[in-house]
């Protein structure tokens, strides 16, 4: 702990680039994110619409799995998101702890429920995909099991966050939990893979497609990008609300509120 504090102090003394400090200012973040929001929302809607139409109407069916293969266009993006959002949450939490940056605390707090929702989606689509493919709703496949544990980790962070009344204390405590979880995540993944090979030697997984033709992977790419854009939009919208609540005494928030055009 002493070492960590010393490190944190050393880091504090180092000059960080100016944008880093600006990012720490809730007002600057609020104004900048306000400019990004329409672009993010628009690109998310565009990417998801094209991706969805392509995935459902034009992509060919898989020669082995038939049309249930189309679930991959939901499963893979949500699984990607669930994992990277957890990482984002832990990094934001660590920045909040080390530099005492309010915006990072807000980001970490707002990312948790969104990440949990995508982990849930990845699990459900994985289970539904499993029924026609493996013949069972739930199979203890390594990926599904890791995703389930990831969902539990998210639920833990959310539960801790809501259990602590004090906002700052809640942010710090859940940041620690998220960091511990991130260190554990590769270990959990490795253990589950090891355990899985022990119990079920042969099971083919969703992403084990050696050569996917372009008309299959291009819509997948679009869907992944669309999901990421949508996630960023959701995250920023949630963060902006949280910032307004936290900074309600600040002058710029009062000015903003008096302006009745802001909806």
């Amino acid at each position: 702990m002493v070492k960590v504090v010393a490190n944190a102090k050393a880091l504090k003394k180092q000059k960080m680039p100016q944008w880093f400090y600006q990012l720490g200012s809730p007002r600057w973040f609020y104004e900048l994110s306000g400019k990004w929001l329409p672009w993010l929302g628009g690109s998310a809607a565009l990417l998801l619409t094209i991706g969805l139409v392509w995935a459902l109407l034009f992509a060919p069916a898989d020669y082995q799995q038939g049309n249930s293969f189309r679930i991959i266009y939901l499963h893979v993006p949500s699984a990607f998101l669930a994992q990277s959002v957890y990482l984002l949450m832990a990094i934001a939490g660590a920045i909040g702890l080390i530099w005492k940056m309010k915006v990072a605390e807000v980001v970490a707090k707002c990312a948790a429920p969104i990440g949990a929702s995508y982990a849930f989606l990845a699990l459900v689509t994985g289970a539904i995909w499993g029924k026609p493919t493996w013949g069972a709703w739930w199979v203890w496949d390594a990926r599904l099991t890791s995703m389930l544990i990831l969902l539990f980790l998210y639920l833990g962070v959310i539960a801790l966050n809501s259990a602590i009344g004090d906002r700052q204390m809640a942010a710090k405590a859940s940041a620690i939990l998220a960091i511990v979880g991130v260190i554990n995540l590769p270990i959990i993944k490795y253990s589950v893979d090891w355990w899985n090979t022990l119990h079920q030697p042969a099971s083919f997984t969703l992403t084990e497609k050696p050569a996917m033709p372009a008309e299959m992977w291009v819509p997948l790419l679009l869907m992944v990008l669309g999901f990421y854009a949508l996630f960023t939009w959701t995250l920023l919208t949630r963060c902006r609300t949280e910032i307004l609540e936290r900074e309600r005494r600040a002058g710029w928030v009062c000015d903003l509120l008096s302006n009745s055009q802001i909806k």
């Binding site: 539990f152 639920l155 801790l160 939990l177 959990i188 490795y190 253990s191 589950v192």
Partner: peptide
């Protein structure tokens, strides 16, 4: 229990 059990999984497995 909710926070710690998921972290226990690797130890349980091995």
């Amino acid at each position: 229990v909710l926070l710690v059990l998921p972290l226990y999984i690797p130890i349980l497995i091995f």
